[in-house]
Structure formats: structure tokens, C-alpha cells
Amino acid sequence: MYGFLIVLGLLLLVSVIWMVYRVQTLVSVMKGSEKKIASGSNKVNAAMFMVFLILSFILMAWYSVKEFDNYQLPIASEHGQITDNLFWITMAVTGFIFILTHILLFWFPYKYQYEENKRAAYYPDNNKLEIIWTLVPALVLTVLVISGWRAWKDITSPAPENAHVIELLGYQFAWDIRYAGQDNQLGRHDFRLTNATNSRGVDFTDENALDDFESNRVVIPKGEPVLFRIRARDVLHSVFAPHMRLKMDAVPGMPTRFWFTPTKTTAEMREETGNPEFEYEIACTEVCGSGHFSMRRVIEVVTPEEYQQWLAEQKPFIVQNPDLVANLPADKKKVAEIMIEENK
């Protein structure tokens, strides 16, 4: 029944529009306005540009100010401060150009709308002007690029030696987290070793792997450099930690990395945002299949002391799953067993 009413309503609407259309066509034929170069609509359209300009600027300004705290995520990493500064500097520069060009673009139509006795200026070129507005944008862009390049160079530079190494492995549809353990060296991996218990394909013949441990959240110390080593097990994924201003693709067959220094603990951030349930999050930003939108992990930033304490409590993989080292060659197995013994 509702469907029928909706269809009926639509039909009525269409027929009303149709009538209006026919009437206005006939009227314009009567008035002969189609023969004129520019009818009264010309004035209306010219005025509409001004109306649009003013109303949309008001709307934009109002919303940008009102929502600032919503869309401006708090920053929690050292480089994030720098890239956000760049962002807002670029925003100021482009915002100025945006407003200026739009004022001209919508005011000119109003100011120079058609008048029967007026004639347009014949003004085909001016090389001086062309050179000016080639050079000025070029200079402004150069400044922006160079500051961006310096930031980029620092961000992508090799991680400091003392960075805490953490591996993030993306798969459909979650992240596996592996810590490098006390030696701060991740053990080798090989995708062919992957199975139900060894979901990361860790190669336990590598002694560095013996103290590696897993975690279901990324725990990192405030103020100390952290290196994410990023891999993917099946398809492309991308690590995105919005508050850290961090993003890097996870590529099958090609390990990637991103290092950063967190500046605020989760507790501090909870205080700052006034949200007692605040968590730093990791999301996936490279489309990876039906569960793409659900690859959440939590980052917990703690003080260095808390971090050391937490680290000490963690047990290596092999302690939890002694089977993993059951088939190792005798000498390596011995080392592993000592490790298990020590950590029990």
C-alpha cells in the first residue's frame, strides 16, 4: 500500500513539474525571451553566485570552527607534531588562495554580467602577468616542498639503535603482534613455516626467535623510540595509527618499517581528552577484503618504568608452546630448553 502511495505521489510530483515546465516554456515563447541574447535568468544566475559564495563561506567557517576538536585528533608522537604543523601551514596557504580565487571566481560573474550596451575588454594576453603567476606559485610550492621533504627525510631515516622492535603482521582480518624480547632482535621468519600454532611463521632455528613473545596489544614506552617492523601474510594491508600520525603498508614478501616516538601515555591522553575509555588504535587502510573495516588493535603507551615491568612479565612463545621447538636440531633444542627453564 505504501509503495502504491509513494508511486502515486511521485507521479503527481512529476506531472506538476511537467506542467510548470510547459507553462514557463510557453510564457518565454510569448515574451520572446528566447530570442534575446541574455534573458532575465542571467541576472538571477549572476546573483546566485554571490549568494552561494557568501552562504557557503559562512557555512564552512562555522563548521570548521565548531567541529575543530572533533576532526583534529590529538597528536601523540614526535613526528606527528611536525607533520601536523606542516598540515596547518599548508592549510593556511591554500586556504588563503582558496578564498581569494573563489571570491574572484564568483564575484566576476556578478560584476561583469551581460549588459546589452557593454562590450567586453579585448585582453588576449599579458606575458608579465603570466610570468608572475608562474613564479609566485612555484616559489610558494618550493618552500612547502622543502619543509615537507626535510620532515619526510627525518621520519623515514633509519630507526635509532635503541628503538624497541615490535613486529606487526597483517592478515585477514587482524594484526598479530610479536615482540623482539630481551635481545631486542626479532627471529627470522619464513612463510612456509606458518601453521596453526606458529601463525607468524617464525623460524625457531634462529636463536633470536627464542625469546620473542606475542601480545594482544601493542604496549610501548612513552618518550622512547619504537620501531614497527611490518609484514603481511596474505594480501596488502596498511598499519594506520591515527594519533601517532603513522601509516605504512604491509606487503606480502616485502617487510616494511616505521619508527616513531610516542609522547603521551594512554593515561595522560585519557586525562587530556576527558574520555576515561580512550585508547590508541591501529586500523587497516589498504583494502584487504570483507573484514577490512574491522582490523582493530590497541596501542597502550605507558611510562618507561611500567614498560620495563610489563616486559619482565612476558613469557616467550616457546614457553607457552614448547611444541614449537620440539623438532629443532639437538644443539639448538638445548638452548631453547634453557630459555624455557629460565622463563618458567
Binding site: 541574447i37 542571467n42 566576476f108 551581460y114 567586453a120 575588454a121 585582453y123 608562474t134 606559485p137
Partner: peptide, 29 residues
Amino acid sequence: MFLTLIIAVPSAVKVFNYLTTLWRGNLIF
């Protein structure tokens, strides 16, 4: 990054040229 931001220059020139074309015209909408 350097190459990309260079391409913004010809694009900017085009915009300024459109604006100047409108300037002191006799515009029919």
C-alpha cells in the same frame, strides 16, 4: 614529491587565466 608539486604550477596558471578571462567580460550564463 618534488615532481608532483611542480605539476601544481601549470594548473595554477590555468586557473588564473580562467579568472582573467572572466574579468571585464560581458558574461552570458
